[in-house]
């Protein structure tokens, strides 16, 4: 029987198919677009560090950008770790419930709201000169500068999830430790962190996932050279920044290579986020 309720349910169900269509269409389109590149280079596409668009000698490999992505994201994570860790303890434990904590929390939320391109600008005009002044390299571009801006960008994500996890630690466990003579530091290290450990870990995984896919700010700071960066202050490219940079003049095999990199990026971020979500579900 086709009554009103049934129709509503069918309509809702059909709408939900849109999500399936978009997601599967996305994978199919990326795969289809990547076929020429994978046909030409095969598995070598992933392990080759050659990126040569010269006509006739065209050769594309994704390795420099995979390494660039991992390097910038790890730098971002390492810088983000102590800062997000401290800030989440500040908001979630030490000043919990105070006006000060909600003020700091609001500032962290604002950090999350700044568009990537504004971060890029600020990084270009403020951070990059600092890196030059410190004498790390002449231009200030490079993997480190990009990682630094990424760190600032992902701190809010790591912080806000960590705060939730820290707040979830039961108060009576903390009180039990205090009643045995523990100081706040003892309580943080012996009770809060062991209990919130997996949640805090997850927050860093998700922050890492965000860093991997960030585009504009990285594009403006990494120096955009298509080689494997040899050091912290060497220039490079990430998978996302490469697409942003090279898309404009790309067609044929080069476009296909960019799509192949987008496909890799899609899978990498999907894996990282899926892993993070799985951990959260287990909590």
């Amino acid at each position: 029987m086709l009554n009103g309720e049934r129709i509503t349910k069918i309509v809702l169900f059909l709408t939900s198919l849109i999500i399936i269509f978009i997601a599967s269409g996305m994978v199919l389109t990326l795969m289809e677009g990547a076929i020429p590149a994978f046909k030409e280079f095969g598995f070598k596409f992933i392990i080759s560090s050659d990126w040569n668009p010269t006509d006739g000698r065209e050769s594309y490999g994704a390795l420099p950008f995979i390494i660039g992505t991992i390097a910038t994201s790890i730098i971002a994570l390492l810088i983000c770790l102590p800062l997000a860790f401290s800030t989440s303890l500040f908001i979630g434990e030490i000043y919990r419930g105070t006006k000060l904590a909600s003020f700091i929390g609001m500032m962290v939320d604002m950090l999350a709201g700044i568009p990537s391109i504004v971060y890029g600008l600020w990084g270009f005009y403020v951070l990059r000169p600092w890196v030059v002044d410190m004498g790390f390299n002449d231009q200030g571009y490079g993997v480190f500068t990009a990682g630094l801006i990424l760190a600032i960008m992902v701190i809010p994500y790591a912080t806000s999830i960590s705060v939730e996890m820290i707040k979830m630690v039961q108060n009576d466990l903390k009180e039990a430790a205090y009643s045995l003579g523990a100081t706040r530091k003892d309580v943080i290290f012996s009770v809060i962190l062991p209990n919130a450990r997996s949640g805090i870990f997850t927050s860093y995984i998700l922050a890492f996932g965000r860093a991997v896919g960030e585009t504009m700010a990285v594009t403006m700071l990494i120096g955009n050279s298509n080689i494997i960066p040899k050091g912290l202050f060497d220039t490079g490219n990430t998978m996302a920044s490469l697409i942003a940079n090279q898309f404009g003049e790309a067609d044929g095999l080069k476009l296909s290579s960019l799509v192949a990199i987008a496909l890799l990026l899609f899978f990498i971020t999907g894996l990282i986020n899926g892993f993070g979500k799985l951990l959260i579900k287990k909590l």
């Binding site: 039961q170 009576d172 466990l173 009180e175 039990a176 430790a177 009643s179 045995l180 003579g181 523990a182 003892d186 012996s190 009770v191 062991p194 209990n195 450990r197």
Partner: peptide, 25 residues
Amino acid sequence: MVFQRPNPFPTMSIADNVIAGYNLN
């Protein structure tokens, strides 16, 4: 102090719970 609801530290073993006072201090 002993609290209203039993609150052994869930991340510690039974033995570690007993000597938690020593470890914490």
